[in-house]
């Protein structure tokens, strides 16, 4: 078995190396395309860059530096993916709701597009949450899945937001589509609240929310680093998705091209 050194003893951390390589790639691509070397095509790439570096270091800390958990042993390390994805699923879906209310109150297209982007990124995060949860559950509880309040409510939450996307896909008129997507998103947010409260309202095999009081200090720090990594990467993904949606909306709005003249 190979044993890797602790992060603090490395001259350059893997995350710093990843960040440097990414910056170098951007600089070289800019030069080769005749742009200024410091040119970033869009602001969100800065978030992606920081997020990726934090993720690499956060996962290194989680897998190598973090002490193993007293009860769960090495299996406990999956929490450095599972817990951040749970937090970010909640945060992203909360923003879906805020943007939905924003759209219905102001009617601004940017809010509608952000509802779509955050819903999609939230679904990706909740799939990651479910997948890591199942891998966590098998060695600890003994099963991948059980009809437990927490697991069922999480699944309902995921399906609700998938339903919002299906609703969106089913409506052709841009105005109606935007309105009903927002209404659907606000209603789906209920399931997020229920998921959060499920371990308090009902008896569940899933433990209650942990807090810095119930987690040992070095583990808390590593969880925070990973949470920020997930946050920055989520902002990056949402912004990227929003740009696609924005381009699509502009294309839909543009007047049709004149018929081609054949000579």
């Amino acid at each position: 078995m190979i044993s890797l050194p602790h992060l603090a003893s490395l001259p350059v951390t893997p995350g710093q190396l990843t960040g440097l390589l990414a910056i170098l790639t951007i600089v070289l691509m800019n030069i080769s395309r005749g742009r200024a070397w410091y040119h970033l095509p869009s602001w969100e790439h800065a978030f992606g860059l920081v997020g990726l570096s934090l993720l690499v270091d956060g996962q290194y800390l989680g897998l190598i530096d973090a002490p193993r958990e007293a009860m769960m042993g090495e299996t406990g390390r999956i929490m450095y993916v599972h817990v951040p994805s749970a937090w970010l699923t909640m945060v992203v879906f909360l923003f879906t709701c805020i943007f939905a209310v924003g759209f219905l109150l102001t009617g601004k297209r940017v809010f509608d597009l952000l509802v779509e982007s955050t819903t999609e990124v939230g679904i990706i995060l909740s799939i990651l949450l479910q997948a890591t949860g199942m891998l966590f559950a098998k060695p600890t509880w003994g099963v991948y899945w059980d009809w437990d309040p927490r697991l069922v409510s999480t699944t309902v939450m995921m399906l609700s937001f998938m339903g919002v996307l299906s609703l969106r896909a089913a409506l052709d008129d841009a105005e109606r589509r935007a309105t009903w997507t927002s209404v659907g998103a606000i209603l789906a947010t209920t399931s997020m609240g229920v998921t959060y409260m499920s371990v308090r309202w009902w008896r569940s095999i899933h433990q209650m929310q942990s807090s810095p009081d119930t987690i040992a200090k070095p583990m808390v720090l590593i969880l925070r680093i990973n949470a920020f990594a997930f946050l920055f990467l989520s902002i990056w993904l949402i912004a990227r998705r929003w740009r696609i949606a924005d381009a699509q909306a502009r294309m839909d709005e543009a007047p049709p091209l004149p018929p081609e003249v054949t000579v």
């Binding site: 958990e69 600890t140 509880w141």
Partner: peptide, 13 residues
Amino acid sequence: EVLVKHNNEYKPP
């Protein structure tokens, strides 16, 4: 079936 319930504490040994 026997399932094990873990509490919300995460501590090193």
